[in-house]
C-alpha cells in the first residue's frame, strides 16, 4: 500500500471531477483532526482515513484485501475506472443528477441505459457526455452514468431515446461480486 504519485492523483481527481462539483470537501480536515487520504494497493485506489491507513501499514501488501472505501481501479494503460463502491462519495457532491421513476429503476439496476421515458426529473443545464449520478425518486443513489444528450436536446427526444449511458449501478454488487473487491 502506498500513496498515489502526482500523475496518478491527477488522473483520479480528473475522473472524480466529472461527477463531483466540490472536490475540496474530499480532503477537508475532520472534526477529530483526522483527514481522508488516497491509497493504492494492487492497482485499486482507496479513500481512507489517515489514522486507519497508518494502522494498515503493519499489514503486508498481499495480506491486505481492502481498506476504507474502494474508489476504483487503475488500468494498465494508466487510466482510472470508477467502481460502484465509490457511489456514496460521488452522491455526496454530485454535480448533475438524474432521478428515475419506479418503472425505470429495475432496468437500470439490471445494467441497461436510461431511456427518456424512465426519467422522473433531471438537473438543468447539463451538457452532453457529462458524468451524472442516478437517483431513485426517493433520493436513493442507484448508480452513475454519462449523459447521452444535453438537457435541452433530451427534451425533444422520443420516449425510447437514451438519455444516460450507464457506468455503474448497484446491481454490480451482485453481478460482479467475484471481481469487485479483488481480481
Amino acid at each position: 500500500m502506498r500513496p498515489l504519485t502526482d500523475q496518478e492523483m491527477k488522473v483520479v481527481l480528473d475522473k472524480l471531477a466529472n461527477y463531483m462539483s466540490d472536490l475540496k470537501s474530499l480532503i477537508a480536515p475532520l472534526e477529530d483532526g483526522d483527514r481522508y487520504v488516497f491509497r493504492l494497493n494492487h492497482n485499486r485506489v482507496y479513500y481512507v482515513k489517515l489514522s486507519l491507513a497508518n494502522l494498515a501499514t503493519c499489514v503486508g501488501r498481499d495480506a491486505l484485501l481492502s481498506l476504507g472505501t474502494c474508489l476504483g481501479k487503475m488500468t494498465k494503460s494508466g487510466k482510472f475506472r470508477l467502481h460502484i463502491t465509490a457511489l456514496p462519495i460521488l452522491a455526496r457532491g454530485a454535480r448533475h443528477k438524474i432521478w428515475v421513476k419506479e418503472n425505470g429503476a429495475q432496468p437500470f439496476l439490471y445494467g441497461s441505459n436510461i431511456v427518456k421515458a424512465h426519467v422522473g426529473r433531471w438537473s438543468e443545464d447539463c451538457p452532453e457526455h457529462q458524468g451524472c449520478v442516478v437517483y431513485s425518486m426517493a433520493d436513493i443513489p442507484l448508480g452513475f452514468g454519462v449523459t447521452a444528450r444535453s438537457t435541452t436536446e433530451a427534451r425533444r427526444l422520443d420516449p425510447t431515446g437514451i438519455v444516460c449511458f450507464r457506468q455503474a449501478d448497484c446491481g454490480e454488487y451482485l453481478r460482479d461480486e467475484d471481481t469487485l473487491f479483488a481480481g
Binding site: 492523483m9 491527477k10 481527481l13 480528473d14 471531477a17 472536490l23 475540496k24 474530499l26 480532503i27
Partner: peptide, 12 residues
C-alpha cells in the same frame, strides 16, 4: 493535494 485539487477543478 489541495493545489492539485484546485488545478484539476479549475480545468474541469
Amino acid at each position: 493535494m489541495s493545489t492539485l485539487l484546485a488545478l484539476v477543478q479549475a480545468e474541469k
